[in-house]
Design a protein around this nucleic acid. Structure first.
Lengths: 215, 215
DNA sequence: TTTGCTTTTTGATCTAGGTCAAAAGAAATG
DNA sequence: CATTTCTTTTGACCTAGATCAAAAAGCAAA
């Protein structure tokens, strides 16, 4: 039932595990290059706009109501966005795994008060950039505009996928969608976070996992 | 209970209804200008890439499985995307109102087989552009990249909103979200389309409307 | 204005998954 | 390592909304 550290080679993910178990983390430069063919000069300049930071477990990066000024890229670790519902319960809205941009999307892009908290779930290494600096990059390089467009449409596709999972699938099917979409995350975060992400109670998710493992 | 043609002035929507009941439809040039400050020359050139078309009611623009090559802008009328679930039932995935871009988003942007049908629900006037031409525009004007980025992030925000409505609200609350998000559409399309969009059966939606009108 | 569709409403029943409560397991803290 | 706190599991029960079936209401063609 536990995630038994299977060896995989994940191309296009941040973490690349090679057969001898050595691990390479993709840094932001490597990542940018996988999306748009930047020149070496561009890459160096663009990277210099980002700041590498260590963030420790459970640190909150954005609070509900704040206007988020920073976009993050997760090199190592993971994060999630969540909000408090009417009963004060935390509802996970999204997970951000390694090799992904992380932000309170609405707040950062529309510069409106954030509906969500953004927090880090593990000791992590991230690259951060302010809205202002990012806008400078958009002005400076049309390749950056392109990157922004591609990253947004990719995110859009993922959100639409989740929407369909949530809207028309049973609790069990939704859990399977989760295993598929976030294989790395599914066994690393508290069950309650995943349950709320999938729009079910943790009791239900616990029962699903149990019957899955019975098979 | 009927939508009683109230006079509104909707700025940033395609249809502008003035107090004397005259109606102006926003064309694509007007729309582009509301998002990014294009120059007049740019606007004229960009518009020339789009083709104005009349599409008649119930015409299908994209079929499930096809790779969608065209993006539409709705000047008049409305459209929806939907798919057939395991029981062959049509499930509405999104509505496209006046003054919005319309596409099978995943297929058009990622050039993968469409999960959805795209159809027009009323006799409509749309502007169309091919993926190739659009990419030319992205190359030619960095303002177009910007437009692409802004339109995608706006769409992303909307989809995230729907996701939250679907995931954590009761059937009645979801219907209220719909009235809010698509006020123009809510009373113009068959109840079944709306019900499936909101992830409920049409019987349930019918009962909700009934008790709402009882109050 | 009758005939034949399509859409909407109503009623009776059923069930997936929620709620509430408590026990059992893990993990952090001192 | 004992204690407190957090997380997961289990059980009993309950409801929102689904399903199934059929009647009613609209609407279009002829």
């Amino acid at each position: 039932m536990l995630f038994n550290g299977s060896k995989r080679i994940n191309i296009f993910r941040a973490k690349i595990i090679i057969e001898d178990n050595s691990i390479f983390f993709m840094n932001i430069t490597d990542y940018l290059r996988t999306i748009v063919p930047f020149s070496q000069d561009e890459l160096e300049d663009i990277s210099s706009y980002f700041q590498k930071e260590s963030v420790s477990k459970n640190q909150v990066l954005v609070r509900q109501g704040e206007i988020s000024k920073t976009l993050y890229f997760v090199e190592q670790g993971m994060g999630r966005s969540y909000y408090l519902n009417d009963n004060g319960k935390e509802i996970t809205q999204w997970f951000f795994g390694e090799g992904k941009f992380m932000a309170s999307v609405d707040s950062f892009f529309q510069q409106c008060p954030s509906l969500y908290y953004l927090e880090v779930l593990d000791d992590s290494i991230v690259y951060s950039i302010s809205k202002t600096k990012l806008d400078e990059l958009f002005e400076k390089y049309s390749n950056m505009e392109k990157l922004g467009r591609l990253v947004s449409t990719e995110m859009l596709t993922r959100v639409v996928n989740k929407l369909n999972a949530i809207q028309f699938q049973t609790a069990r099917e939704r859990y399977e969608y989760m295993l598929d979409e976030f294989p790395d995350i599914a066994y690393q975060v508290p069950l309650g976070h995943i349950a709320s992400y999938l729009g079910m109670t943790q009791e239900t998710l616990s029962r699903i996992r149990k019957t899955n493992s019975d098979k």
